[in-house]
């Protein structure tokens, strides 16, 4: 049996670590499944490979929430659900509440969630040559043009923070930062700052959301596997997830240190600024999200985040 596993990220990304760990674990389980591995996006971008997994063309992938296929997947972008890695593991990690929530959504798309892969807290960065370091929102952010991913919640979030949001595709981002078409970018985990370090002045740790991805396998494909092979695959996946969550925080912090060493100014928010930022988004972004995913899920999310 051959299993095609593809994702759209480079080999220093946590997806690669996950893939390699999984391949080894599968061998350790004595499975006969051969993994045909395609990293780097040679079969399409992440949303495209996600669709190919839904169709069973590429049975397994690691991908972010492509809300094009189900708007409820926007949930993965929701701000300030968890504060630190410990909480993140409880909520999103193995046996956390969110795996079940996501499984319920993705089952409708003929996908099974093998695990939630953490990539780290997403924050804001300013381009080289920008002197302002916005830390107190919304006052500091006035007039700063910030790139947001072209999704509704991205614009909502940074508008609430006081920025001028500029929706822009990822492919134009680097040049836009270099030439000053925009002043800043949002939703950036440290690995992406490392990739763009040459054009970044400051990395401001707003930690406004916890970026995580889905490790999925096509449900029909999985069900057609012989029972013992399926069992081996699932055990290999569990072992992989445990290891990935053990290492994820260190990888994220590793990139942050590399970013710091490369001369980018890394700025923490003061506790007051942080609670102000949270208050803004709970008041503006969360009701916005409720319109998409419904009150039931949002009540649960409020429960998780500990807000009333």
């Amino acid at each position: 049996e051959e299993l095609m596993l593809a994702h759209a990220y480079p080999t220093d990304h946590i997806f690669h670590l996950t893939s390699e760990t999984f391949t080894n674990q599968l061998k350790a389980q004595g499975s006969t499944i051969e993994v045909d591995y395609h990293p780097g996006g040679d079969l399409g971008d992440w949303a495209s490979i996600f669709e190919q997994s839904m169709e069973g063309v590429v049975p397994m992938t690691m991908s972010f929430g492509a809300s094009e296929y189900d708007p409820r997947l926007d949930l993965s972008w929701l701000s300030y659900v968890v504060d630190d890695w410990k909480e993140a593991r409880e909520v999103y990690g193995p046996n956390g509440k969110m795996t079940d929530v996501y499984n319920e959504i993705l089952n409708d798309l003929d996908l099974v969630v093998l695990g939630v892969i953490p990539t780290g807290f997403g924050s804001i960065a300013t381009r080289k040559g920008i002197d302002e370091v916005p830390t107190s929102f919304p006052n500091d952010a006035q007039g700063i043009k910030i790139r947001v991913p072209p999704i509704p919640i991205g614009i909502e979030r940074f508008k609430s923070f006081g920025f001028t949001p500029v929706p822009m595709p990822f492919s134009e981002l680097y040049t836009a930062l270099q030439l000053g078409t925009i002043d800043a970018r949002g939703t950036a985990p440290s690995v992406e700052i490392w990739q763009m370090r040459d054009v970044i002045e400051a990395y401001i740790l707003t930690k406004d959301y916890f970026e995580h991805a889905f490790w999925v396998v096509n449900k029909s494909w999985l069900e057609e596997l012989p029972a013992d092979e399926r069992q081996k695959l699932l055990s290999a996946a569990d072992a992989t997830m445990a290891k990935v969550w053990d290492e994820a925080q260190a990888i994220d912090e590793g990139f942050l240190n590399k970013v710091r060493d490369s001369g980018v100014k890394v700025v923490e928010l003061s506790p007051e600024d942080m609670s102000k930022a949270k208050k803004i988004l709970y008041a503006e972004e969360w009701p916005f999200m409720e319109k998409t995913v419904g009150p039931e899920i949002m009540t649960m999310m409020r429960d998780i985040a500990g807000i009333k």
Partner: peptide
């Protein structure tokens, strides 16, 4: 520069885009 294939190469290969 700028060149889209070079951006793709650098990001995929984890090297500095500017360099």
């Amino acid at each position: 520069p700028p060149s889209i294939p070079m951006i793709v190469f650098s990001i995929t290969g984890g090297v500095s885009v500017g360099a």
